[in-house]
Design a protein around this nucleic acid. Sequence first.
DNA 1: CTGAAAGCGCTTACAG
DNA 2: CTGAAAGCGCTTACAG
Lengths: 348, 348
Amino acid sequence: LGLIDNRPVTIREVAADAGVGTATVSRALNEPWRVSPDTIERVKASIGKLGYKPNFRARLLARGNSGTVCFLLSNRPFIHSVHGQILQGAASEADLLGVQIVYASCTYSADVKPSQIKMPQILAARGLIDGVIVAGTNYPNLIPVIEELELPYVIFGTNYCDGSGRLPNAVYVDEQEGGYQAARHLLGLGHTKIAFIGDVSLPWYAHRYQGFALAMSEAGIGAPKPIGSAADGAVEMGVRAARQLCESKTDFTAIFAGGDRAAYGAMRMLRKWGVSVPDDVSIVGFDDDEVASMAEPPLTTVRVPTEEIGARCVLMLNDMIRAGAVPEEPAVLPAELVVRASTAAPKK
Amino acid sequence: LGLIDNRPVTIREVAADAGVGTATVSRALNEPWRVSPDTIERVKASIGKLGYKPNFRARLLARGNSGTVCFLLSNRPFIHSVHGQILQGAASEADLLGVQIVYASCTYSADVKPSQIKMPQILAARGLIDGVIVAGTNYPNLIPVIEELELPYVIFGTNYCDGSGRLPNAVYVDEQEGGYQAARHLLGLGHTKIAFIGDVSLPWYAHRYQGFALAMSEAGIGAPKPIGSAADGAVEMGVRAARQLCESKTDFTAIFAGGDRAAYGAMRMLRKWGVSVPDDVSIVGFDDDEVASMAEPPLTTVRVPTEEIGARCVLMLNDMIRAGAVPEEPAVLPAELVVRASTAAPKK
DNA sequence: CTGAAAGCGCTTACAG
DNA sequence: CTGAAAGCGCTTACAG
């Protein structure tokens, strides 16, 4: 019932059956253009007859690489749909490339010494992995630990909390442009009093705010101060920020929340205050996370191209492994506005 | 910048440095009890000095297995938090065992011939993988495809849609018991008019309904017919079922929904009808998915032990790989009631 | 275009 | 307790 019993057939047996050397069988499989058609035919026949499938471990040992990259998901105790989709995209692309993805996860806090960060065993072993994709939410103290592996790596830059600029070996989303689009959408509908919810001490909210602020100032309107603290989670941030907005009797007809969860929390609080979305207040989120389509009304948001992020991470890493060099520039992927039912023109 | 330059040190260099044979180095690492303390000391010193790390590919080739299992996630275009957590649990357990998890996914429909199901390449290759964990939602037509791999496998039974009984090489959740607990909770609060939402043509809803019905009949109350069709997704099922309940003026004070998403949908519709949860109607879900804690009010639900499911899958598979045999019985994990704010005693 | 042979870096009987 | 040697199943210069 599904268990291996007999020894699998090896390349030697195929070679014997086809009356050629093992080298020829290997070439017929990997570099067919260097083998005569007749020979290929004979080899293929033997392969079919014997049911031969090459042993990848042996191939990889001979070739000197592992054909495997590690997808390391940091600091995500349970996977948001966004991160699941990134993994999904990475896996699909990897399969196309004939590369396998090993999944690993780790948890650490930003203020701990690098030497105190515990990595999964897999990463410690040599030869198992050709490179690593550093996904999830990360902090600069992880970098020395990753560097110590002496393996090429690419980092999902959007959730990397560094003080400095962009890393070359990274994949980013153009969040600034996304925030800009969100603001343009609201402005285009006729809104001018637009609040921003997001904790700008976190880089993703900061970038989204920047794009928002740019669009506002282009429209000749001053951007409001961002409100919200992410300390108790994104949903709670939205809840509190919306409450603050309502309690302080701020004059606003629209909210741009720097994430769908925050938008969701804000909508919940607005409902409590008897504020109707989108009739009284329009709201746009960011991410196009699962909650965006589950919200009531479904949320207008800015889509982060999750699967493509995963695919690009794999592609970039693969190039780095082959080239043995770090890319000149990071990949920056566009974000896209998705208009649903939570936005409308302001009441006259 | 993080790229391999110099050849890594091999076991031969360590052996030379320590003045022993390679076999002794290998033993010092893998079977230290067969080596004299002095020798171990010398070997360890050389390992430290040279910075030697064993090459796993070579080790595995020599040992004859791959030390890798595949986590195959079927029919989940984007990962729910439940499935993410199962993967997470599998990865943690695997790391403890020194096994790596390669992630792969596939999509197929229930009514297609096995020969038409496309598997990721990784599974086709020999030697890369010692066994597979079949997770996600699956149908019987996948089994021949998996069997053809001639690899041990364990299946996540809860989301496996078969007509027959339980498989031995599988991990299940005791959903019947979970449904029973949900009903007992509602009955204990004083509810007697309890509706059930769930599409019992799907096994998980059917099992949850069975437990529910048992508790009801034990309480001397006939179980109501289940309502809902999962064709348009779980949230929509909840929305429509609740509407049906309201429109038909069914007399009920509580709802047991066979899943959190359905419960979420139902709560949304109840709110539209001006029905307050839990004041007018109590509601309990199932899964303890992320939506349960995000709902307003937070949902009383039955927790599926996701991480443990993943861990048990890995453990069972590992045993199968070692023993070369299929287990006698499946693993059945308990579900646990989580009381939150969506349930209360019925109004007098 | 093809084959014999060395080699990838370990482990494991086998002999002592 | 230890070492020399064969072997895991491929790939790849090297020579023809």
